Simulated scan of single mutants.
Amino acid sequence: MSTTIDVPETSNVDTREKAPLLPAPRQAGWRRGIAIIDFILRLGAIAAALGAAASMGTSDQTLPFFTQFFRFEASYDDFTSFQFFVIAMAFVGGYLVLSLPFSVVTILRPQAIGARLLLIILDTVFLTLAVSSGAAAASIVYLAHNGNQDTNWLAVCSQFTDFCQATSGAVVSSFVTVLILDCLIVMSAFALSRNN
Rank of each mutant, 00 (worst) to 15 (best):
G147P: 13
L122E: 03
S11W: 05
S168H: 05
V178P: 09
T128V: 12
L143Q: 15
P64T: 10
V171H: 03
T15Y: 06
M56T: 09
R71C: 02
F160L: 07
D162W: 06
A191V: 05
D38V: 07
L50T: 13
P110I: 08
P8T: 13
R26N: 01
A115N: 11
L179T: 14
R32M: 07
R42W: 02
A135E: 12
A35E: 03
L41D: 03
N195Y: 06
F175V: 03
M56F: 06
A166Q: 07
R31A: 14
Q83F: 01
A136S: 14
A115G: 11
S188D: 15
Q27R: 04
Q83L: 11
A74Y: 03
N152L: 07
R109N: 08
R42C: 12
I140S: 11
R109F: 04
F39S: 14
T3H: 15
Y76F: 15
T10R: 09
P64H: 01
R71M: 02
M1A: 15
F102M: 15
C164M: 07
T177C: 12
C183Y: 11
V125E: 03
I113P: 00
V125R: 01
M56W: 06
T128H: 03
G57W: 09
T80L: 12
A115L: 11
P25R: 09
I120S: 07
S59E: 03
T124C: 09
G33K: 11
A52F: 08
L98C: 12
W30A: 07
V186G: 05
S139H: 11
P20N: 10
D6M: 09
T151G: 09
A19D: 08
M56G: 06
K18Q: 03
P23T: 06
R16E: 00
V97R: 04
L122G: 08
V92P: 04
S99Y: 03
T124H: 09
P110W: 04
Y76P: 15
A170I: 04
G147T: 14
F65Y: 06
F91E: 07
N146I: 08
F79G: 08
R71S: 12
I185P: 02
Q149I: 10
I180G: 06
A24I: 00
T124G: 15
F72I: 09
F72A: 13
N195C: 08
R32W: 04
